[in-house]
Nucleic acid binder design. Structure first.
Length: 257
DNA sequence: ATGGCAATGTTTCATTGA
């Protein structure tokens, strides 16, 4: 079973990329972030034609998340948002697929460490952690994947000195990510030997991708039961080389279940 | 010290992202 995550930075613009990617990578589950579509505009029929069904929750212009699954593997027990966390922004969707609880998240960017948006980011991550405690009690096979907007370690940042204290790499948000992992979730990517300078996001500006100036901020966290079953985790950086790419690359985890 | 790139919208620039 393959489960992937991809911040597509507008599904309207990126739909051809996603359909092409699914044809070449027929994963069982694809979690999408930043669809930027209201639900009435979600391209249900296009995915249907590609053999996928979708659960989604979105809004105009910003945010929006979705879980695509193969038609033969319908998702059940769908939960939208973080129950009990007051938030107008559509950033979380949860569903069960073939006995695996899948939580697709788009963590707030935070803008800058002095901003209200940064405080919202930390509150969101705390609420997510609390929710995952609840989910983990009833679902031993738990995967929490998406755009965390946090680079966990020095090796996840092209220039740690430049990024020190900056949003996406500041200590409080890294601690918040650690607190999420501490409920019993492992970073699937780090279960395996990986190339140096492995990133999932590169700035569109200043030839960020060409110069290898990226961050690893998209993650697949797995519970112990899934950790035991995980046999690979890779970043598809080829996708970033294509015409009109998302600034994020897909991340794929493979499980022997 | 600054802007640079991309997507969006009651658009022709401002806002946001990361």
């Amino acid at each position: 079973m393959k489960i992937a995550t991809w911040n597509v930075n507008s599904l309207k613009i990126r739909l051809p990329h996603v359909l092409d990617w699914l044809a070449r990578h027929p994963v069982e589950v694809l979690a999408l972030q930043e669809t930027k579509l209201t639900d009435d505009r979600f391209p249900v029929a296009d995915f249907e034609a590609a053999g996928y069904r979708a659960d989604f929750i979105g809004q105009k212009t910003y945010n929006g998340v979705a879980i695509l699954t193969k038609r033969a593997m319908p998702a059940t027990d769908v939960v939208f948002d973080i129950p009990g966390f007051e938030d107008d922004q559509k950033r979380v969707i949860t569903a069960t697929v073939a006995g695996v609880r899948v939580v697709c998240v788009y963590v707030p960017n935070g803008q800058s460490v002095e901003s209200d948006k940064y405080r919202y980011k930390l509150a969101f991550m705390q609420a997510l952690r609390d929710r995952l405690v609840v989910e983990s009690k009833t679902h031993p096979k738990l995967v929490v994947l998406g755009d965390y907007n946090v680079a966990p370690e020095d090796r996840d940042v092209h220039d740690p000195r430049q990024w020190e204290g900056q949003v996406l790499f500041s200590i409080p948000e890294r601690d918040a990510l650690k607190a999420i992992a501490a409920i019993g979730l492992a970073d699937a990517f780090r279960l395996f030997e990986q190339p140096a300078k492995s990133f999932t996001w590169w700035d569109y500006r200043m030839l960020g991708f060409q110069k290898g100036r990226g961050l690893r901020i998209d993650h697949i966290l797995v519970s112990d039961a899934l950790k035991q079953a995980c046999t690979a985790c890779t970043i598809d950086r080829d996708e970033r080389k294509k015409a009109q790419p998302s600034d994020h690359a897909p991340v794929i985890a493979t499980f022997e279940l």
